[in-house]
């Protein structure tokens, strides 16, 4: 185990490819039944080429990755995300974290989740773009896993 230092990166964690069933499962779990996320004809009528994930689904995956990096979610004191791009069925979500500060028994990690994939027909999306950025602040526990320069599962 390495004591985390500012600039240390956590191993990239990839979720997906996102299935339509994953979006429906999250709708049921969260109670977010906005039809733009689950009903493709409705989404098209609203001007989107297809359904897309509610932001809190990739935000949930990113929190999951951060929790695993920090040895569990028990030390979380703050978790914040900003939504930058929609996440589409078929996308992979690659989560990365970089330590920004370690002080007073607290660690702050800058978080990024990239969507990777072709995106829906009708949109010319880049193969990879930032879907969300964020930050987690946690009490430093006994098991923080930093693997500098490594990219694992």
């Amino acid at each position: 185990m390495t004591l985390p230092e500012p600039g240390s990166a956590f191993p990239e964690r990839t979720f997906g490819p996102l299935g339509r069933v994953d979006i429906v499962r999250y709708a049921g779990a969260s109670g977010d039944f906005n039809p733009i996320h689950i009903d493709a004809p409705y989404a098209r009528a609203a001007g989107a080429p297809d359904v897309f994930a509610m932001g809190m689904l990739p935000a949930g995956y990113l929190a999951h990755a951060a929790s695993d990096w920090l040895g569990g979610p028990g030390g979380f004191r703050r978790y914040k995300v900003r939504f930058a791009a929609r996440v589409w069925p078929g996308d992979l979500l690659a989560c990365t974290g970089m330590v920004t500060t370690v002080a007073g028994g607290h660690i702050v990690v800058a978080l990024t989740a990239l969507r990777r994939g072709e995106g829906p027909e009708g949109l010319s999306l880049p193969d990879e773009e930032i879907a969300l950025t964020g930050e987690v602040e946690a009490e430093l526990g006994s098991s923080v896993f930093v693997e500098e320069g490594e990219h694992g599962a």
């Binding site: 809190m56 935000a59 979380f76 978790y79 939504f83």
Partner: peptide, 16 residues
């Protein structure tokens, strides 16, 4: 809501 997007989400925790 036709013009509304989710911009940010933040949680502040004392415990889970």
């Amino acid at each position: 809501y036709a013009r509304v997007l989710h911009a940010e989400q933040e949680f502040l925790y004392n415990r889970l």
